[in-house]
């Protein structure tokens, strides 16, 4: 980056890439990738989705305008392709979240932290889904069991914890890359004597690591999952 000022007005490749990496579409791509790779649900990026939605509308208008004004069909199809790709990203992002919510809805509902990662629409959707699935399980199974065994969350009345709730496995391994130099990462897996050693991460290098160890760094956006 230091050389950029010397070369005058022509942006260097680095600069160009840096510029690209801050567009909303690129940010969405990053959020989408992380969401796809993380075993648990991540924070819903309300502002980002809002901005992308606005941009999509603008792009649609451009395409419409060009198609009625009889613009060059090639450039039109390029605009259309760009639009379609962004739309796919957005759809896929929301879809992955919905699927995670469905899978772990009881677990997400129990914890305020997880629950607040959902958007308003997702919360409404999740609440209704919980009611539906609960009703379905009660109707099919629980109402037919003896009284002390009818809870959705607990195996029986003597269970102290909720031991019937499916939870995401946070000890799975993920592929990740850091944007900056990070140190002092506590590993949560491997032999006990190794766990006291702190782990360092170089920027731009790929690591294959237990999700639990880097969970806070993913949540704060310091590490991207791939």
């Amino acid at each position: 980056m230091a050389s950029s000022s010397m070369e005058g007005s022509m942006p260097t490749m680095d600069e160009y890439e840096a510029l690209l990496s801050t567009t909303d579409v690129e940010l969405l791509k990053r959020a989408w990738r992380s969401e796809k790779a993380a075993p648990e649900i991540l924070r819903y990026d309300f502002d980002l989705v809002g901005r992308v939605t606005e941009q999509l509308q603008l792009m649609e208008e451009t395409v419409d305008e060009k198609s009625t004004s009889g613009a060059d069909p090639l450039s039109l199809s390029l605009y259309q392709m760009d639009l379609d790709r962004t739309l796919f990203l957005l759809r896929s992002y929301l879809r992955i979240r919905i699927q995670k919510i469905e899978k772990y809805m009881f677990h997400i509902r129990k914890s305020d932290e997880l629950w607040n990662r959902l958007s308003k629409g997702e919360k409404d959707f999740a609440s209704r889904c919980i009611d539906d699935l609960k009703h379905h399980l009660e109707e099919s199974v629980l109402s037919k069991l003896p009284e002390n065994y009818q809870s959705v969350e607990k195996q029986s009345v003597i269970s102290e914890e909720d031991d019937m709730v499916p939870e995401p496995r946070l000890d799975t391994f993920v592929l990740c890359r850091s944007k900056e130099y990070l140190s002092g990462i506590q590993l949560e897996d491997g032999p006990v004597e190794d766990r006291s050693k702190l782990f360092e991460m170089e920027p731009g290098v790929l690591y294959f690591i237990c999700y639990k160890s880097i969970k806070p760094l993913v949540e704060s956006g310091k590490i991207d999952l791939l």
């Binding site: 259309q80 392709m81 790709r85 739309l87 796919f88 759809r91 879809r95 919905i98």
Partner: peptide, 11 residues
């Protein structure tokens, strides 16, 4: 959300 399940190559 139910359409567009695979990344689009061509519109």
């Amino acid at each position: 959300l139910t359409v567009d399940m695979v990344p689009p190559k061509d519109p």
